[in-house]
Structures are given as structure tokens and as C-alpha cells.
């Protein structure tokens, strides 16, 4: 297998999701990523690189190599 040329798009994007490294397709959006984690994203919020992304923008938020994604929900506490 030959090395990819620099002007070709990468086959995958390496991102960090809740502290773990994930390989996703280069056209993966935040919406698709959250759907992989939960089928019912009620009570869930997401931040990319420490910025909260409102849910209506999830489908328009592509993920790129190096992105840090935090996906949070409410749990028992306090």
C-alpha cells in the first residue's frame, strides 16, 4: 500500500471523544457521532474543543482530526 499523497483527503479523522481516541470518516458530523453513542439523545449536550455546540447545529458540525469532543448527560449527583 502506497502512502497517501499530501493533497489527498485522509481516509479517516482521528478525534477524541470523551477522552478516548476514535477513527471516524472524514465527513462525520457531530450529529452522527452522538447517534453512535446513544439512540435517544434527550438530556445530552456536546462541546467541541471546549465550545458548546447547540443541538440544531450538530448536523452542520463536521469533525476533523485533532478535535476534542465531550458529550455529557445528567447522572445522579449532588
Amino acid at each position: 500500500m502506497t502512502s497517501p499523497r499530501l493533497d489527498e483527503p485522509a481516509a479517516t479523522a482521528r478525534i477524541t471523544v470523551n477522552g478516548a481516541t476514535h477513527e471516524v470518516s472524514p465527513d462525520c458530523t457531530l450529529d452522527q457521532l452522538v447517534t453512535r453513542l446513544t439512540s435517544a439523545p434527550s438530556g445530552v449536550a456536546a462541546a467541541v474543543n471546549d465550545t458548546v455546540v447547540p443541538r440544531p447545529q450538530w448536523t452542520r458540525t463536521p469533525l476533523a482530526t485533532g478535535d476534542r469532543v465531550e458529550i455529557l448527560t445528567a447522572v445522579q449527583g449532588g
Binding site: N18, G19, L37, T38, V44, A45, E70, I71, L72, T73, A74, V75, Q76, G77, G78
Partner: peptide, 8 residues
């Protein structure tokens, strides 16, 4: 109250 934690 509830706490906010990573979705698992």
C-alpha cells in the same frame, strides 16, 4: 440536583 458526566 443532578451532575453532568460523560455519556456512556
Amino acid at each position: 440536583t443532578v451532575a453532568m458526566r460523560r455519556l456512556a
